[in-house]
Design a protein around this nucleic acid. Structure first.
Length: 756
DNA sequence: CTTGAATGCGTCTAGACAGCATGTC
DNA sequence: CTAGACGCATTCAAG
């Protein structure tokens, strides 16, 4: 089938595809068209990565828009939302407008209502539905990307319930589900009343193989000899690819392994760089060092300089995108990565090397083999369409038996079936409350009727399981005052609040208990601990020595904690409580202006983890603040207003990462924790001071940076921000430098002594 | 005495969505 | 109850 034969698309779009060199549809795309994708028919496409899924989605969405409709594209990750948005913006020239909505990149509801195609994460869509976004009713087409994630215990149920809700609101909704190849795509098609397009066709060849010793065995029966002397397997494979001007992606099972591998592989790649590449890489390395002043950042820069990089979730998001970009530009020749990269933005590579195919799993207490699906996702990164003649995916075997085992287990094996995880209590807790609160169900029968529309219901034979868990969850929600239950189901004011705030009801209950237990002014640490022990904050790992360390802090600061502290003998509860204390201490350090590199060192985490923790804390403290005012509205024994004030202040302190006295200054645009501290040290203690102060002092405090100083003065609303004829005040400058140096060692008085 | 390979032992373990109101160094 | 790579320290042999 030719692109020119496509009908029903906006004017100019078929020609646009042709100008991109797309003449002929790929077989699975043609199959989708035959199944009526451009006529509003629902499709489940279960096809390999990089075999033209996006094009199928575009056909559905654009034809739907051409008929006057509105389309929604659901992604699993925020990073993918911006990637897709950029891809779809190509069509703006044909009058199709694009909007994005994720937690951190938001456009308000009314603005989204005017867009033809909206890209959003599944949680954001769920939240928009809960909050009654009106444009949801106007949707004519929804595309769910990576729909096999319904298998994920934590986030799968959200996708499942969201699709069920969207289809309930609009029974004629065209549903397009894009999935990796899975064992039971037919069940998903069944669930969504869609036609199944199931294909293993790929636009470029993928050769799969296993390396054992010197021999690389491929699935087509061929073998390649790999000269490798004393070189490790991975290094030899990377070197071999480089000989063919190709790049490699190495998947390993831990962050530490990723960093160690990148360091070792740098010794291989450094010999394959041109002078031009070397100098460009030096610039990139400087850029990396600028992102953050931490060891991770340094290690990454050192590797990148030599043409190697690592990639994992402990990196700052800027680090991640730099690494991805520079790999796509072929400057960096190899990335050693944890599985983040397999699920994330598009980073294709000539050769994919899966070094570790087992991963530690605390629940079983040992190494567990990865799912076939997961390994295939990694394999799918091999081969760049249009650039590589073929892609290669290689596993590494350490014994002859393993060689055969890996072929059977991963090369020849079909991926597993995906199974809905909706019947788990934590998932139902949040979705049942939301379903009732946003009016999808007014009685228990209606609730069960709604749950019948989910994948779970179509998959299970076990009758009654859903009913039983539903009853337990309803009891829980009623007991905690989120629902009222007689012959009907009704969300209370508090219940509505919790649903809108997108909180796990259990988190909300914990926060409410804590706030009620707070007698007078709660401290920041007390509040940080409160939000850190909710299920919405994921726990830091307690390392050796941590148990004793934090037990000691727990007793020292016992009066600050809100609510009951479990006894040391309730082993599990106490460990969790301590782990939350560790998180709380991290937040306290951050809000006490301790330097980033000290924090990463002290808690053995990456710069990206700090950001993650701080963001979550900010979100939960905001929720706590709203819950406090909701309680004040509805409660008999209303909370003291000092509590709300304390929560707000604790939130602002983590938000800016500063002590209380800097809150005013840190709110000024372009003034962060460091600059605020320097200004304060120079005697400028508030925005008012900043508007009045001697310009030379301000300039000195900002260490003589004229452009920055002007911008800041402008942002604070100073009438005449110009710095002409102003020289930096020497004393202020000296103080600023001194403050900077001290800050490196001191993160607020109360933090000292506990560790050193 | 130096260097470096071999061996032993303790340590630690992937990922990442959401609210709200505006913007780091 | 279950594993295994890394990194540091110690040991041992060659030069």
């Amino acid at each position: 089938m030719k692109v020119a034969d496509l009908t029903g698309l906006p004017d100019g779009v078929p020609e646009h595809f042709q100008s991109q060199g797309i003449e002929e549809l790929y077989p699975p795309q043609a199959e989708a068209v035959e199944a009526g994708i451009t006529d509003g028919e629902s499709i489940v496409a279960s096809i390999p990565t990089a075999s033209g899924k996006t094009f199928i989605a575009e056909l559905a969405m654009l034809s739907s828009v051409a008929r006057g409709g509105k389309a929604l594209y659901i992604v699993p990750l925020r990073a993918l939302a911006s990637e897709k948005k950029e891809e779809f913006e190509e069509f703006e020239q044909y009058g199709v407008s694009i909007g994005v909505s994720t937690g951190n990149y938001d456009s308000d509801g009314d603005w989204l209502a005017t867009k033809d195609i909206i890209v959003a994460t599944s949680e954001k869509v769920d939240s928009l539905v809960r909050n009654g976004a009106k444009w949801v009713d106007d949707l004519s087409c929804v595309v769910a990307d990576e729909v096999h994630l319904v298998n994920d215990a934590h986030r799968g149920p959200t996708l499942e319930v969201t699709l069920a809700k969207l289809r309930r609101v609009n029974p004629n909704l065209q549903t397009v589900a894009l999935s990796a190849t899975v064992g039971n795509a037919d069940e998903m098609a069944d669930w969504l009343d869609a036609t199944l397009v199931d294909s293993s066709w790929r636009p470029i060849d993928l050769r799969k193989g296993v390396l054992y010793g010197q021999a690389l065995h491929f699935d087509d029966g061929t073998q390649q000899e790999l000269a490798r002397g004393k070189q490790k397997e991975t290094a030899a494979l990377v070197e071999d690819t480089l000989g063919d001007e190709g790049s490699s992606l190495v998947f390993v099972n831990s962050r530490r392994n990723a960093e160690a591998a990148a360091k070792r592989l740098a010794d291989v790649t450094k010999n394959h760089l041109t002078d031009e590449e070397r100098s460009k890489l030096r610039e990139v390395a400087d850029e990396i060092r600028d992102v953050s002043d931490t060891e991770t950042s340094d290690d990454l820069a050192n590797a990148v300089e030599k043409g190697s990089a690592f990639h994992h979730a402990g990196l700052a998001s800027e680090h991640r995108s730099i690494v991805e970009d520079v790999f796509r530009d072929r400057l960096v020749k190899v990335i050693s990565a944890t599985p983040t990269l397999a699920a994330g933005v598009n980073t294709p590579s000539r050769r994919v090397i899966v070094r570790d195919w087992r991963r530690y799993d605390g629940d079983v207490g040992g190494m567990q083999p990865l799912d076939v699906l997961e390994i295939h996702q990694m394999f799918g990164r091999a081969g760049r369409p249009g650039l590589d003649p073929y892609g290669e995916a290689v596993l590494i075997a350490k014994s002859h038996e393993e060689l055969q085992e890996l072929f059977d287990q991963y090369v020849w094996a079909d991926p597993e079936a995906v199974h809905s995880k909706l019947a788990a209590e934590p998932a139902l807790r949040t979705h049942i409350l939301a379903t009732v609160a946003s009016g999808f169900a007014g009685t228990e029968d209606e609730l069960l009727d709604f749950l019948e529309r989910t994948l779970y219901a179509t998959q299970t034979d076990e009758t009654g399981r859903l009913e039983t868990v539903t009853q337990r969850v309803l009891d829980y929600l009623e007991r905690n005052g989120f629902l009222e239950r007689d012959d009907r189901l009704r969300a209370t004011g508090l219940g509505h609040r919790v649903s809108q705030l997108y909180l796990d009801p259990m988190s909300a209950a914990e926060i409410i208990d804590g706030l009620r237990a707070a007698e007078d002014d709660p401290t920041a640490l007390g509040l940080y601990h409160l939000v850190s022990r909710t299920p919405d904050m994921y726990q830091l790992y307690l390392r050796s020595g941590d148990r004793e360390r934090y037990t000691e802090i727990a007793y020292e600061r016992e009066p600050e904690f809100l609510g009951h502290m479990p006894s040391e003998f309730e082993d599990h509860a106490f460990e969790d409580w301590l782990s939350a204390l560790k998180t709380a201490r991290l937040l306290e350090d951050w809000a006490s202006e301790l330097d980033e590199d000290r924090i990463t060192e002290r808690y053995a985490i990456g710069p990206g983890d700090i950001r993650g923790k701080v963001d979550t804390a900010e979100w939960l403290l905001n929720a706590a603040e709203r819950l406090a005012s909701e309680l004040q509205r509805s409660d008999e024994e209303s909370l003291p207003s000092a509590t709300t004030t304390a929560v707000r202040e604790a939130r602002k302190r983590v938000q800016y990462g500063v002590e209380e006295e800097l809150l005013d200054l840190a709110g000024v645009r372009n003034v962060g924790r460091k600059r605020a501290r320097r200004l304060y040290a120079a005697g400028i203690e508030s925005r008012a001071d900043l508007r009045e102060a001697d310009k030379s002092v301000v300039l000195g405090a900002l260490r003589g940076r004229r452009k920055t100083t002007e911008t800041i003065l402008e942002n604070v609303g100073r009438k005449d921000p110009s710095l002409d004829d102003v020289e930096a005040d020497a004393e202020a400058k000296a103080t600023a430098t001194k403050t900077a140096n001290e800050a490196a060692g001191n993160g607020g008085q109360q933090s000292l002594g506990d560790f050193e």
